[in-house]
Computed example of a mutant assay.
Amino acid sequence: MLTLIKKFYRKLHSFFVALLVKISPYLATKYLYKRAMGKSIDLTNPKNFNEKIHWLKLYWKHPLVSKCGDKFEMRNYVNDMGLSNILNNIHSVYDDASNIEWNTLPDKFVLKVTSGSGFNIVCKDKNKINRRKVEKKLNKWIKTNFALKVGEINYQSMKPRIICEEFMETEEGNLPIDYKIFCFNGNPKYILVVTEREIGVKRFMFDNEWNSIDFLKNRTSDGMITPKKPDSLQEMIFYAEKLSNPFPFVRVDFYDYNGRTILGEMTFTPDAGLATRYKESFLRELGDMIDLPEKIT
């Protein structure tokens, strides 16, 4: 009974948030921030990282934000920049999961819905997946208006698609490490490294010289092995600088795939602007690096 009540409450809350975003993204932002952070957001004079991410979301609606936040349209931006060499190969693009031609796909691949976050299916053996369930899940995701989930209105104008990308793995058969570069007005400053994504995510932060940054609340270092600097780090920083130049802030995500730099995605609202795991001092430091532009509404 308790589980059913919790499930009903989550659905009711999701409906309320979606309705509030439709009525007023501004009010939805204030509500979601207060609920997550336990304090009111200052959008008149934003200071920390989360506040400025929300300000940019609401008041800097540059068309490139939606274009580059879309996992398919981003590829056109990258191609226009002359950087097609860092794009992962795509097998197919679909408007509906029922159009997937499974027999033409390789044994390993990744399916992504391009207009949201976390809408990914990693397939290591297509003969072992339940294709009907996968299609059902993908079609549910593709019909989801991600902008209404937590007020990330930069997703609103994206056309939902499904892309099938080439599968990447390490020599050990694991998913590659994520290198997420925080860029401010075209200046890469910090690299968030995400490891062990299959068995329990671990996070590390480094500066451009690979000096470790103490950034998490309640960090425990027991059993934590600090990741080695990737061979392609300087390449990643170079490409991040090129791609991030038009934006007050963007996080440019890469993989080091056998020494080759591969672009993952470009993220404009990390943690939906509700990062609770970072130290307050670090949030303020990141916020100080964002110079807010003139409004584009």
Rank of each mutant, 00 (worst) to 15 (best):
L111V: 11
L2K: 13
N89Y: 15
N48T: 07
C68H: 02
S212I: 15
F204M: 00
V134N: 09
L56S: 05
R251D: 00
S84N: 13
I153N: 08
A240R: 08
I162P: 06
P25M: 01
Y278F: 15
L148V: 02
F16S: 11
A28K: 04
C68A: 15
E294T: 12
T29I: 03
S92M: 11
E135W: 04
I53W: 02
W55Y: 00
D222M: 13
K137L: 13
L12E: 10
F72Q: 10
P46C: 14
I5V: 15
M158F: 01
L243E: 07
E135Y: 02
F254M: 09
R35M: 03
Q156L: 12
P63N: 07
L58C: 06
P230E: 09
M74E: 13
L148G: 02
R75C: 04
I213K: 14
T104E: 13
S92T: 12
K6N: 13
K295Y: 02
E135Q: 13
G223A: 04
F184P: 02
F119M: 14
N208T: 14
I86K: 10
D214Q: 15
E169F: 03
L283H: 01
V252I: 15
T220F: 08
E280I: 00
N103T: 08
T276N: 08
P25L: 01
T220C: 12
E165G: 06
E171R: 12
C183Y: 04
L148S: 04
I225V: 15
R161M: 05
I237P: 09
N88V: 14
K61L: 04
N85M: 13
S14F: 13
L105W: 10
G82I: 05
S232W: 00
I290Y: 01
F182P: 01
I262M: 14
T261V: 14
N76W: 05
L138W: 03
I213N: 06
G69H: 03
D222Q: 14
L64V: 04
L111K: 09
I23S: 10
T276K: 10
V193A: 09
T297Q: 12
G38R: 10
L19Y: 11
T195I: 05
F109N: 06
G151N: 14
N185D: 14
F16V: 11
D256L: 00
P293N: 08
M37E: 02
S40A: 13
R277E: 12
H62R: 02
T297Y: 11
S221C: 08
T104K: 15
I225W: 00
S24Q: 07
I153H: 07
D96K: 10
F238Y: 15
P270K: 10
R10F: 08
M236Q: 13
N99F: 02
M37H: 03
D80L: 05
P227K: 07
N79M: 12
P248C: 06
D271P: 03
N218A: 11
K137C: 09
L216V: 04
I213L: 15
E172N: 14
S92N: 13
R132V: 13
F167P: 06
N50P: 06
V193F: 08
